[in-house]
Simulated scan of single mutants.
Amino acid sequence: MSKALIIGAGDGLSAALARRLAREGYAVALAARDIAKLAALAAETGASRHATDAADPAAMAALFAAEGDAEVVVYNPSYRTRGPIAGLDPAEVQKSLQVCAFGAFLAVQQAARRMLAAGRGTILLTGASAGVKGFPLSAPFAMGKFALRGLAQSAARELHPQGVHVAHVVIDGGIRSARRPDGGDQSLLDPDAIAESYLQLIRQPRSAWSSELELRPWVERF
C-alpha cells in the first residue's frame, strides 16, 4: 500500500487532503504539534498520528524514521506574526522563518534521502500569495514563504532528473472552513478542490511534471 505523510496537519486543507488520499488507497500519516486535535480525522481516515515540531531537526528525523517510506510527503506548516517592521519581535520573526522555511528544508532533506534511494516519490510544499508578493505588516510571513518557494525551485531542479517530483503550490486566497465560511460570494478556495489539485500533481506523468501550481478562486483579482 502506498503511504502519504502530511506534516502540519489540521482541519481545512490538510483534512481534505487526508480524506482524498485515503479514498485513493493511501495509508496516511498525520504530523502536528497537537495530535489530540487530529483524533476525529485519524479515526475517519485510518491515519496514524505523530506529535512533531516541524522546525526541530531531531523531531523530524524521528518522524521520518517512523514514516520515511512514504511515497508522498506534503509540508503544510506556516506561522504568521504581523506588525510594522520597526516594532516586530525578533523572536517571533525567527519562529516564522523556522516554521515556514527551515522546517520545510528538514522535510525535503529527509524525504529526498529516502526517495532518491527508491528512485521515486513526490514532495509537495504549500505556499501562499506571500511567497510571490510581500504585503505590508506581514514581512516575516513573506520572508518565510519566499524562502519556501526558493527551496522548492532549487529542489525541483536537483531532484526531478533523479526521479523525485517536487512542486510548490501557491494558495492565492483564503481557504473556506467552519471558522471561515464563504458567505455566498465564492471568494474562498474550497479545500476539497485544492486537495484534488494536489492529487493531480501526484499523478502527473514524469514527462510533464509541474514544479509550481497557482490556485485561486475564479473571482480573485491578481
Rank of each mutant, 00 (worst) to 15 (best):
V108R: 03
R113N: 04
A58C: 02
A40N: 07
T81F: 12
G46I: 08
L188Y: 07
P191V: 00
I6G: 00
D69T: 12
T45F: 10
C100V: 07
G131T: 07
L213Q: 03
Q162P: 04
L13N: 02
A178L: 04
V166P: 03
L21V: 03
G134T: 14
R216F: 12
P217E: 03
K133E: 13
A4N: 08
E214L: 14
R80Q: 15
L97F: 13
T126L: 13
L201G: 08
S210K: 14
R23N: 09
D11P: 12
A16Y: 01
V164I: 12
T126E: 10
L106V: 14
P205L: 07
A40G: 02
S177K: 01
P205V: 05
D89C: 14
R179Y: 02
V170T: 09
A118P: 06
R19E: 12
L213C: 11
G173W: 02
V93L: 14
P140F: 10
V74Q: 00
P181R: 01
V166Q: 03
R82Y: 14
M60Y: 00
K145R: 06
A107R: 01
L188H: 07
R80C: 07
A86G: 15
S129C: 10
I7Y: 11
P84R: 15
A15Q: 08
A111I: 10
R114Y: 09
S48C: 10
E71G: 15
A40Y: 06
A42M: 07
A54P: 04
V93G: 07
A117P: 06
S177N: 05
A58Y: 00
Q204D: 01
A29D: 08
